[in-house]
Design a protein around this nucleic acid. Structure first.
Lengths: 252, 252
DNA sequence: CGAAGCATTGACCCTATTCAATTTTGGTGG
DNA sequence: CCACCAAAATTGAATAGGGTCAATGCTTCG
């Protein structure tokens, strides 16, 4: 298990020795590699095992009957999917690799045993689920309320921050494996306008984005433009993130 | 506990006698009533107990620093919130009543005990969480991919269908407690355009909407317009919903 | 080295927004 | 029961943010 995955799994609090050891064993024994741009799970499939993404990028997406595609989330190393598998009967969305991807398969029986045996593991799953839900809510807020520029800035901030907290950044730079077309499907805009929006951000010196590499030159300014409040990424963290969110309540 | 709540809680499979009895007792003993348009939980609050909405409508919403508000979901009788409370440290969003609301409070200790004692209850919570997540994904898809008309139609279909499966409809009619302003905040559009969109749907004879009452005259046609596929509402159902989703996979 | 996919650019257009005014509704107190 | 007020719904006209279409240049990778 690469260091950032361990790091990520500890994000929600320290695991007890035996549960950590157990997880580590699992994620080393049952690893598989998948090429880029392949569906891992399909909308309508019956649900199966659970996975931990060890390395590479993947996406959740949903397709409408007429073919329009919405990318629902980006899965980064350390992310768990699809917890769904345990209770749900069928997938309402699909999951696909973007890059070559290394993932550990955790089959249902093994997990059931572990969840009963190690309360830590059950807690970890809940935390991951809560954080995913919070991210989904933030994306809905973006799609509903933010302008194209703000949405773009918000997404860049999120992907940078999530990678930073998994020790995957080098300074102001991180990997970035979405094409402009995929950005468009994520942000609910057209590829043409994605291109123009990116150029604006580049022209203003806020970011560089080339060769699957994102550099954020001025994070504070980008965050301000994005109305970015990282609280939603931290709602489950164990250590002292304030998480406090000072907006005034909505006037009812 | 009113009949529709029982019905809703059984949606994910039959509970064992003692866990159902236990739930029933709880939701009768600790009930409180809240007036319309009041915050029940606030963005930034530390998380507390869990609630079951017994009667009335409520919303989840999120506010950006500059005041823009996105409504993230509509809570109907039988819905559980905020499961979050058990693991998360703080709320990333708020919850407010729309109508007068009756809710049962389930405090943390009681719930912890129950979850250990009755595996059914833990399962029920996971199912509810999964369905909420699926709804949130569908809303993201709406906001990102559907036009204003389609978004409106989709929301009307969803709220009708959810009420129908809780036995809250009479024929083609159900309650509808969102103002046009709230619809706007839900659908990511302006109140003016919500008004115009609704008038279109009315003019075409698809719906009636007045006096907090929605009537869907032609559900099949509205569903078609909305690209509505109710599968996402059923991913956790125990009995024979097919859930199958026949769209062709995205070409990669 | 060729082809397919991705990024970029320009011109035009449309969906939805903005602003501003008016009507209707619903709730309250006299 | 009616008069009054605030909030919600409705309408019109002008506008802008972002979409569409189409062509060209640039990568990447077999």
């Amino acid at each position: 298990m690469t260091p950032h995955v361990t790091h990520k799994l500890r994000e929600f609090g320290d695991l007890e020795c035996d549960s950590e050891a157990w997880l580590l064993r699992l994620t080393q024994s049952n690893v598989m590699t998948v090429p880029p741009r392949v569906d891992l799970l399909r909308q309508g499939d019956c649900t199966g095992p659970m996975y931990i993404l060890i390395d590479g990028w993947a996406i959740r997406y949903k397709i409408l009957v007429d073919g329009r595609r919405q990318i629902l989330s980006v899965l980064l190393p350390g992310d768990i999917f699809d917890i769904n598998g345990f209770m749900a009967k069928s997938m309402d969305h699909s999951i696909a690799s973007l890059t070559a991807v290394k993932l550990a398969e955790l089959d249902r029986d093994t997990m059931d045993t572990a969840r009963n045996q190690f309360p830590d593991v059950e807690k970890l799953l809940w935390c991951d689920m809560h954080v995913s839900a919070a991210i989904q809510r933030e994306w809905s807020t973006s799609l509903g309320q933010r302008t194209a520029r703000e949405r773009m800035a918000q997404l860049l901030c999120e992907l940078f921050t999530r990678q930073a907290s998994a020790n995957l950044c080098q300074g102001k730079t991180c990997a970035f494996h979405l094409t402009q077309i995929e950005l468009a499907e994520t942000l609910g805009m057209t590829p043409v306008y994605v291109n123009r929006t990116l150029q604006d951000l580049r022209r203003e010196g806020l970011i560089q984005l080339e060769n699957r590499t994102l550099t954020i030159n001025d994070l504070p300014r980008l965050e301000q433009l994005a109305l970015f409040d990282p609280g939603y990424l931290r709602i489950c963290e164990s250590d002292g993130g304030t998480g406090a969110n000072k907006e005034t309540a909505h006037v009812l």
